[in-house]
Each structure stands twice: as C-alpha cells, then as structure tokens.
Computed example of a mutant assay.
Amino acid sequence: MKHLLQNAWLTRGGLACLLWPLAQLYGLLVRLRRVLYRRGILRSERFKVPVVVVGNVVAGGAGKTPLVIALVRHLQAQHIAVGVVSRGYGRSGLDCVEVTPTAPLAQTGDEPALIHKLTGVPVFVADKRTEALQALLAARPDTAVVLCDDGLQHYALQRDIEIAAFDDRGAGNGWLLPAGPLREPWPARKHHGLDLVLHTGQKAAFEGFTSSRKLADDALSPTGDRVALDGLRGRPVTALAGIANPQAFFGMLEDRGLMLEATITLPDHHVFSETDLAGLRGRTVLCTEKDAVKLFALPGAAGLDLLAVPLVFSPEPAFFAAFDALLAPLLSPLPSKHGHQIA
C-alpha cells in the first residue's frame, strides 16, 4: 500500500482519484482545526522568548534537521543563546526528556540526539512541544531563541517565525493526504503565517530560497578518526541509509567517485540492533550521521569497519539575511509585535 500511495502522489490519476474524497475530508479537518485555534477554542500557548518553527508542508523528511543545525550554528556565531525542542519522532515513551550524551536513544529519538551531538545546545523532547519548551526554559533561563524541530502544524505552540523546508518533490501532485503528500493546502499555506521557504534539494520547484548540500571530505569512525573519502576510491564499499531519501545519500557517494558494491535501504528512523550488524562484517560500510548515532552505540559496532559521512548543508546567504531581519525586532529591547498568532 505504501508503494501505491507513493506512486499516487506523482499523478492526478489512478489511485489518487480514488482517494480524492478522503483528501477533501482531510482538508476540511485541517481548516476546522486552524479556526478552532484562531478563535481560542483550542488552547495555544505563547512563551517569553522568540520561537522559530522549522517544519514541513509535505509528509516525510525534507531536510528539516540539517536546517535546524544550520540555524543553530548561525545563531551561535552571533553569540545568541539558543535551545531546541522536538517531539523526538520514533522514540519510546511520551515523557519530557533532556537530550544528553548518556540519555538512551530510545527515549530521545535519533534526530534530537544528532542535533545535540553536532551543536552542543540544550535539546529537550516531549510528546507536547510546549512541555519541552517549558522544561528547556526552566533548565536554561538564559535561552534567547528557541528552535522547534518540526511542528509546523503543532498550533498549540505559538510561534514568531515559521520556516518550511521542501526537497525535490516540491508539493508533489498538489493534493492533500492521502491522495497527495501535502499536510496542508499549498500554496494557500503561505498566507497563513509562513515566513520563509527553503528548498533543500538540487532544484527549487517554486519560489523560495535555495541551499547546497554535499558530503564532507572526510568520513568519521566510531572512535572519531577521520578517513578521506577520496582514499576510498577504487575500493568496494557498502552504503547504508535509514533516512527519508536513501537514494540521495547513495547518489552523493557515487558522485564522489566511490564504487558501491551494495546499498542497504532501511526505513526512516530505523531502530538498529545487533542483528543488523551481522551482515556487515568484512565490509567497509558508509552511513549517514543520523544512522551513526544509533549504529555506533551498539556494542558490536566496535569490531566493524563503519564510517559515518557528514553532510555539509548550506542555505544561501540571502536566507540567513532574511531570517536575521525577522529575528532582530524580536530580540530588540524596543517594543515589537513579537510574532504572529495562528492565522
């Protein structure tokens, strides 16, 4: 069924037409929910610090987490105290948890753990992002800006800046779930509080800022040793990816001149176990940093030739300039509107 739905998203015929009534119903529910929040029937909470939500209008991964990491580093470069909140997709339990190097991945989720590892900023996860933000501010009262990884449709948390990430799929066939990939109507969503659009893929499907992505020159071993990617050319390697778009990772490795003797595609947020390692012995295995967060933590990984290949993700300078222009009034001691309500 998943394969059929993915194909349906690529065309306005076939199965997509059969699912059209469900998409219409979904659209009505989306609009009703927005109205309930706008009129205060459903509670929406505002916090004392600027909140920036980075999310998707389409279902599935579209580069949100690399964008959050890029924004964190951009704020760190300006010496702005920043924290991150997330639901922690795929984790076990609903409790509010602070992400630390020793916190079990099953309780934090892979993407929050990766954000914390690469940036060092405080990261809190909770089923309700408002609870994560409350815990973050209680633990780090000096926090000046909070980034929410995902949550564009989580209207219980009021936000000051909304950023939507799109990959090469763009808006797909333009239909709402389940007939298409859209969580909300597009381009209508642009007129309901959305501030910035960033394309994270190779080509922009419509107007918005662009970004570049490439693999780092060096891969990293579980012990932190660096291995030059160019030094792996001419040597058979296995590529493994449990992300939203594994083929993008495999393609970038091939573009660097690497010979992939095998590729292993796993579901996004795959929970690795020792069983997954059994077939990797005797191979040089390249994986993403997101996969490495989980793979390197397994005891059996120590005896394998596992290498994580970092992604170098760079939004265009104009994107950061536009972001800074939106954020500056919120950080100023002068009076400001301090963001927008649910439109």
Rank of each mutant, 00 (worst) to 15 (best):
57 V>D: 06
273 S>W: 02
47 F>L: 11
301 A>V: 03
164 A>T: 08
213 R>A: 11
175 W>L: 14
242 G>P: 08
137 L>G: 08
134 Q>G: 14
24 Q>M: 09
236 P>I: 01
138 A>G: 11
326 L>D: 08
297 A>S: 15
310 P>R: 14
336 S>I: 05
233 R>T: 00
272 F>Q: 06
258 L>S: 02
91 R>P: 02
45 E>V: 13
276 D>Q: 05
146 V>T: 11
80 I>H: 04
321 A>F: 10
35 V>P: 00
7 N>Y: 05
104 P>E: 09
232 L>K: 06
40 G>L: 13
154 H>R: 00
8 A>F: 03
42 L>W: 11
146 V>S: 07
92 S>C: 02
170 G>W: 06
316 E>Q: 14
254 E>D: 02
265 T>G: 10
324 D>A: 15
278 A>L: 11
90 G>E: 02
293 V>M: 08
245 N>F: 01
39 R>M: 11
103 A>Y: 03
290 K>S: 13
41 I>N: 00
315 P>T: 10
30 V>I: 13
147 L>R: 14
111 E>T: 00
251 G>M: 00
290 K>M: 13
292 A>T: 13
102 T>L: 13
73 R>T: 00
124 F>I: 12
193 G>D: 10
313 F>I: 10
84 V>D: 03
161 I>L: 09
92 S>R: 14
11 T>V: 09
121 V>L: 08
66 P>Q: 06
87 R>H: 01
246 P>F: 06
316 E>K: 07
66 P>A: 06
334 L>A: 12
39 R>L: 15
135 A>W: 13
149 D>R: 08
91 R>F: 07
110 D>P: 12
73 R>A: 00
255 D>A: 15
228 A>N: 05
45 E>A: 05
135 A>N: 13
320 F>K: 04
185 P>K: 14
336 S>E: 04
243 I>Y: 01
102 T>C: 11
247 Q>I: 01
56 N>C: 11
109 G>N: 12
50 P>T: 07
244 A>S: 11
96 C>T: 15
168 D>R: 05
58 V>Q: 02
259 M>G: 07
108 T>F: 00
258 L>W: 00
194 L>H: 09
271 V>E: 13
246 P>T: 11
132 A>F: 08
118 L>E: 09
289 E>S: 15
144 A>E: 15
177 L>G: 02
131 E>R: 12
192 H>F: 15
152 L>G: 05
116 H>I: 01
99 V>T: 09
283 R>Q: 14
279 G>E: 13
290 K>I: 06
217 D>S: 04
148 C>L: 12
229 L>H: 07
330 L>N: 09
162 E>W: 07
67 L>K: 05
207 E>W: 01
90 G>T: 00
72 V>R: 04
220 L>N: 02
195 D>C: 12
293 V>G: 03
233 R>C: 05
287 C>Y: 01
269 H>I: 05
258 L>F: 00
314 S>T: 15
165 A>C: 15
52 V>F: 01
168 D>V: 09
297 A>I: 10
31 R>E: 08
290 K>R: 14
194 L>S: 10
214 K>N: 04
302 A>G: 04
225 D>H: 14
339 G>A: 08
243 I>A: 01
182 L>T: 04
270 H>W: 06
249 F>N: 01
109 G>I: 07
78 Q>K: 15
